[in-house]
């Protein structure tokens, strides 16, 4: 990107503007980072309290039936479904640090149930589709960025984000259902 920018600026004589822009960018990214720092600390602190107070487990119980419905082809109890639930609830709180290890655990549990170790099972495809549009009720980084840039209402995006994730996941799951038909049962 930078090489393209310099080459283009050199050809159309914009190098002076480019020069100015470089230093303006550095300054604005620093200002942004300072604002971001405060918000991020507030949200991560709050979320940690939510985590410790057992809210995640409560949420897991609440969404359990839906998860068992989506993953109808793996055992109803046990490690696989448990770690999938933990992964999804961590994502709901925007806890990326907790969600990824849980997700890795979930997929290795799914691998144990998989008959063909080189090939993804139907459940794995579904799990990754859900992970490509995680439902997040607390998108702390985005809210923090919005707050640090002076938004009147940083949290206004929470509701639309949840609806969008649900739409994306449902679309993805429908695609999985269609493709599964052709691939046979693993």
């Amino acid at each position: 990107m930078i090489a393209l920018a310099i080459a283009l600026a050199a050809t159309n004589g914009n190098l002076e503007v480019l020069n100015k822009e470089i230093f303006a960018s550095l300054k604005s990214s620093l200002e942004l980072a300072l604002g971001l720092l405060g918000s991020m600390m507030l949200w991560c602190g709050t979320i940690k309290v939510a985590e410790k107070s057992g809210m995640l487990k409560k949420l897991g119980k609440l969404i359990g039936p839906i998860i068992r419905l989506i993953f109808h082809d793996i055992p109803k109890e046990g490690e696989a479904i448990g770690s999938i639930t933990m992964n999804i609830t961590s994502n709901m709180f925007g806890l990326g640090n907790a969600a990824t290890p849980m997700g890795l655990k979930a997929i290795s549990e799914l691998q144990k149930l998989n008959n063909n170790k080189n090939t993804a099972s139907n459940a794995m495809c579904r799990f990754l589709v859900i992970n490509s549009a995680p439902i997040c009720i607390m998108p702390s980084t985005v809210i923090s960025i919005r707050a640090s840039l002076g938004s009147n209402n940083p949290g206004v995006i929470i509701l639309p984000s949840i609806i969008v994730s649900i739409i994306a996941i449902i679309t993805g799951l429908i695609c999985c259902r269609i493709f599964e038909g052709k691939g046979g049962i693993y």
Partner: peptide, 18 residues
């Protein structure tokens, strides 16, 4: 896992829908 089957296609379609 080497053969990811329809994972990428489904995820991309989901992303686009999003």
């Amino acid at each position: 896992v080497k053969n990811i089957r329809h994972t990428l296609v489904a995820a991309l379609i989901a992303d686009l829908a999003g």
